[in-house]
Amino acid sequence: MSDSPVTAGSVTTMEHEAHNPALLHHFSDAQQQKNAASLGMWLFLVTEIMFFGGMFCAYLVYRVAHFNSFAAASQQLSIGMGAFNTAVLIVSSVTVVLAVKAAEAGKRKLLVGYLVVTVLLGMTFLVVKGFEYREKFERHHVPGPTFKFTDTFDDNGKQIPVNPKEAELFFSLYFAMTGMHALHMIIGCGLFSVLAIFAWKGHYSPGYFTPIENAGLYWHLVDIIWIYLFPLLYLISRHS
């Protein structure tokens, strides 16, 4: 998302040493450019928060309105897979931090390595998510004409009053929220793959690694959104 100078294809590594070719003409110095890119990224993250905020708002409204059905529907999600994915994402955030450190230290191979691991972790998340979605299809938990919801007993065998329509609404929100999150994960994986290639080609130096930093910020945000999604979707019925 940052206005990174990735298209400067003709620039050779030699010139990198001479002056900073990454400095765009309209900035007065590299520090100004870095500050601008960083502020721009933070603002973009704000828009992302507002974007997901709309869905969180819808979720909260309906959770309060249809508490029982939401609790019952929530129990049908796989906490195991959700927790595994949470762990995967937390680890991937660590590897992103390490990648930024490596870029700062100018360790090119290490940087590429961490970026690749991050992408792999991201893909692991998506694959697990895919299995979860498949399970939902198999159990007719996908909203639509085939939707069925018959699980109206909690773990203690106590009957929960459930309206299938409301359970369907829960799954609508589940798919909308996790789907939008997964889309952001896919974008993030693509972003890091491109950055890994550029890093391999030596585009970044200790003096210039803003794209890595900004992509890292993006990845952390996507992580944090999951950190909220996991308890709200998977764990809400576990408090009693």
Binding site: F51, M55, A58, A176, M180
Partner: peptide
């Protein structure tokens, strides 16, 4: 623009 527009964007998606 940056605080409001994303909310209408998600509303339109929904």
């Amino acid at each position: 623009m940056i605080l409001g527009t994303p909310v209408v964007a998600i509303t339109i998606i929904l």
